[in-house]
């Protein structure tokens, strides 16, 4: 129920207009890091559309998550500039370090979620890695692993 109170609070700042669906989903996700089934149902009631309809929109966009996320989010850029400068190696090294299986993005202890991102637009400093909101440029495998270790305790 507590989840719904949070969502209801968000909904008070919006009109019941379908065009507000994506901004509502964005604000709701910002609260807990992902969209829970309860949140989707609540938003559906508010806008007068079915949860199915909401999933169809939300699943279209890369930004939305439907599962609990790790405490820290590590995003490894896989844009063109990062690709030609070894972004793939950084991603694989972090994957190994976090002991993630193929298809798994969040560690079992919910410390980290690993994402591959198409481009941050910090191409001049490729390869780039972002942890939470901090952008780290000119990555190397060893610097990336050091950063992961630093965030592990945080």
């Amino acid at each position: 129920m507590t989840a719904n109170i949070g969502i209801r609070k968000i909904l008070t700042s919006f009109t019941r207009d379908r065009a507000n669906l994506i901004p509502i989903l964005q604000k709701s996700q910002a609260q807990k890091g992902y969209l829970s089934p309860e949140a989707i149902t609540e938003i559906g009631h508010f806008l007068g559309i079915t949860p199915n309809d909401i999933y169809s929109v939300a699943s279209f966009y890369a930004q939305f998550r439907f599962e609990r996320q790790g405490k820290h989010t590590i995003k490894v850029c896989q844009g063109t500039a990062c690709h030609v400068r070894g972004g793939q190696q950084i991603l694989e090294a972090v994957e190994r370090e976090l002991r993630l299986k193929p298809g798994q993005s969040t560690t079992a202890d919910y410390q980290f979620t690993l994402e591959r991102v198409a481009c941050f637009g910090a191409c001049a400093l490729a390869p780039v890695m972002v942890i939470d909101d901090t952008v780290y440029g000119l990555m190397t495998v060893s610097r990336a692993l050091k950063l992961v270790a630093e965030y592990r305790g945080k």
Binding site: G79, A118, G121, A122, A124
Partner: peptide
């Protein structure tokens, strides 16, 4: 601006 490798607009 979503092309990988572009940051003019940003």
């Amino acid at each position: 601006e979503g092309d990988p490798g572009a940051f003019m607009n940003r």
